[in-house]
Design a binder for these strands. Structure first.
Length: 389
DNA sequence: TCTGGGGTCCTAGGACCC
DNA sequence: TCTGGGGTCCTAGGACCC
């Protein structure tokens, strides 16, 4: 008689990823508060004596936000998503570095390849995190000494070591029976952590946490739960399923109930195709459709051209062309239209996006403009006139 | 000194067809 | 002239995530 194997899923999250990559390049910044974000206007300057001069957060002007902050910067009360101008009030002396996505993508490929050497079944969740299937790996079900889960723990350590060897970077891993719990667990011992939990650990380790730690409970749901006097995952777990369904609807209410009890049967998604490709930009200052027509038009054209190149480079064509506008009051509207034949051509996209733009009332000033192509399919060989580039 | 850029998924109404 | 139900596609907005 053989028992079914215990399911083990890992969630791996790189520690302060962008900032850590920058520290590899600028080791003299180690231990200092560093913030990544903003435009290209604050590159470090190499001085005659060989040292570097870095931009200070205090010197920043503009509308950028923090993409990542080092742990010493976080200790000063700044965090990702915070406006740089606001962050400058809290940590004026923090170093500010521009984002270098090409570099982060290169390190992303390296750490994922290092994980795949140990465990090839991976779900990509973006540039700095992944889920990893551990269930069937050799030794995953074996105890080691007095540790009943020693086998799977050793695999997780192996993954961490391989990532560090390949990149010089640390990561934090959660190992549990499902994606939901692993995602929470990977944050419990950051940085450089390894947290292994089973269902038996839920009351002690999961229930005391705030509901917002659950992936899928955002600002809105969190606020609504707070008005219902539900703050921790344990308080959520105390509520009856029908009551949650009544408060949050059939789908979301039932999911909240499952999530609070650590129930999640989702399989790893090891392959996916993009649904949408888009480009958008926030202006340095709000623009008016009439008074700033020339500037707006030039930006519009540039976005469309970048988008067409993205599509062609990635090998996709799409039938639904859309735009996005954000006004000075932060209200956002979208318009889209579906055309006859899928395209990756700038001229076609520009035409359709222009028609979409005409359907919007442009009385208010605009802070953001975006262009989007969806209903994507792979560009067949020779089928797409835009694919020549 | 408010709030980037790139995504996914869900909901809901209306058109249109059978 | 009225009354259905179901399915699919299109469009707009919103929540959420990295």
């Amino acid at each position: 008689m053989t028992r079914p194997p215990r399911r083990w899923i890992a969630h791996l999250d790189m520690d302060a990823f962008y900032a850590s990559v920058e520290l590899l390049r600028y080791p003299d910044l180690k231990g200092r508060p560093v913030v990544i974000g903003g435009g290209r206007r604050h590159q470090p300057e190499l001085l005659a004596d060989g040292t570097r001069r870095y931009a200070r957060l205090a010197d920043y002007t503009g509308r950028g936000v923090i993409t990542t902050a080092t742990y010493p910067a976080r200790d000063l009360g700044v965090h990702s998503g915070m406006g740089l101008m606001k962050a400058a009030l809290r940590a004026p002396q923090a170093v500010l570095l521009p984002t270098d996505f090409d570099q982060y993508r290169a390190y992303s490929r390296r750490f994922k390849a290092a994980v795949a050497e140990v465990a090839p079944l991976i779900e990509d969740r973006g540039i700095d995190e992944i889920y990893i299937e551990l269930t069937e790996l050799p030794g995953a079900q074996e105890p080691v000494g007095h540790d009943p889960y020693g086998g799977v723990r050793a695999i997780a350590l192996d993954i961490k070591n391989n990532v560090r060897r390949a990149t010089g970077l640390t990561c934090s891993i959660g190992v549990t029976p499902n994606k939901l719990l692993s995602k929470i667990a990977s944050e419990l011992d950051k940085p450089d952590g390894l947290t292994l939990l089973t269902h038996e650990d839920i009351p002690e380790r999961i229930w005391p946490l705030p509901v917002r730690r659950i992936n899928g409970i955002g600002p809105k749901a969190g606020a609504k739960l707070a008005t219902l006097d539900i703050h921790t995952i344990g308080e959520l777990a105390e509520r009856e399923r029908p009551w949650l369904v009544q408060q949050f609807g059939r789908s979301y209410g039932a999911w909240l109930h499952d999530a609070s009890h650590g129930v999640d049967e989702r399989a790893l998604v090891t392959h996916s195709e993009p649904v949408t490709i888009s480009r958008e930009t926030t202006f340095d200052r709000d623009l008016h459709a009439k008074r700033d027509k020339a500037e707006l038009s030039a930006i519009f054209t540039r976005l469309v051209e970048q988008l067409a190149l993205d599509l062609q480079r990635k090998g996709y064509v799409g039938r639904t062309i859309g735009i996005k506008l954000r006004f000075e009051d932060f209200k956002t509207v979208t318009r889209d239209m579906t055309i006859e034949a899928p395209t990756a051509e700038a001229a076609t996209i520009r035409l359709a996006a222009g028609l979409c733009l005409k359907r919007v009332d442009l009385a208010r000033r605009i802070r953001l403009l975006g262009v989007r192509v969806s209903a994507l399919r792979r560009a067949g060989p020779g089928s797409d006139p835009g694919a020549r580039a």
